[in-house]
């Protein structure tokens, strides 16, 4: 569990991994989106609107996966006091919130031509909006605690408890009658033709790589900031100590 506790060890794998994830993510997601926009056939009922699928589904997945990352980091923070956990949670929050918002926006742009409405207060849509507000709360809370020097365990508790919304989002279309259709994929079964499935898989993997790269970059930035601050504090202390000795010597 403490394998990556050491920031040096974390950086030794994060540094080379970042550009690879970025390149792979940009290539996969870009290729899949281009394919989705130009090569994918129109759907039997939805027609051309189906192309929004290749943005909407990865965004929904990463919105939820982002909170699972926060929850995992929060668990590591609370139970094992893992030194990098707070940084990992904070780093996942902004990309998670971005993809949740993207899911809501693309969903709205899809809902208007497909369902005939931009927004409905339905179980799936509402629980996804709740997720966005949870992200905004977590971002505000973690930034405030970091700035005030308060314990990072406060946002961690929030991150752990907020995870309950993730299964609610997932099962909202099964538990309640919803305007949103049930998932197209279940264990071993698919209700989606290969022509849609393959670019969807590529785009989901691509955006996941980009998400991971963004989390790594934000972790590196937060780590560098804390290291720089610690160094400044140490130097200030040393300078203070020197000044004190000089004063004593002069007295």
């Amino acid at each position: 569990m403490h394998g990556f506790a050491n920031p040096k060890r974390f950086l030794s794998f994060a540094r080379p991994l970042t550009p690879w994830l970025l390149a792979l993510g940009l290539a996969l997601a870009g290729g899949a989106l281009f394919w989705g926009l130009t090569r994918v056939p129109a759907e039997r009922l939805q027609g051309e609107t189906v192309r929004i699928l290749f943005l909407h589904v990865p965004a929904a997945w990463l919105g939820m996966a982002g909170w699972m990352t926060i929850a995992g980091a929060s668990l590591a923070e609370i139970v094992w006091r893992h030194p990098l956990a707070a940084i990992a949670g904070r780093a996942a929050a902004v990309p998670g919130a971005f993809f949740t918002a993207l899911c809501l926006v693309t969903g709205s742009l899809w809902g208007r031509p497909a369902w005939g409405t931009w927004w409905e207060w339905d179980g799936r849509l509402t629980s996804m909006l709740v997720l966005l507000f949870l992200y905004l709360g977590y971002i505000a809370l973690s930034q405030a605690t970091a700035r005030e020097g308060a314990s990072s365990r406060i946002p961690a508790i929030f991150g752990l408890f907020g995870v309950i919304n993730v299964p609610v989002i997932h099962f909202s279309v099964t538990w309640w009658y919803s305007i949103h259709q049930p998932p197209s994929f279940s264990l071993g079964k698919s209700a989606m033709a290969t022509a849609f499935q393959v670019p969807l898989l590529a785009s989901t993997m691509g955006f996941t790589c980009l998400f991971a790269a963004v989390v790594l970059m934000r972790m590196r930035a937060l780590l560098a900031e804390t290291q720089a601050e610690a160094r400044l504090r140490r130097r200030a202390r040393e300078a203070d100590g020197d000044a004190g000795q000089l004063r004593e010597a002069g007295a």
């Binding site: 039997r44 369902w115 209700a191 033709a193």
Partner: peptide, 16 residues
């Protein structure tokens, strides 16, 4: 007063 279309989870190409 208002009709909304609800599509199912099946995705099938139109060119079928």
């Amino acid at each position: 007063d208002k009709l909304l279309a609800k599509h199912d989870e099946n995705y099938v190409p139109r060119e079928l």
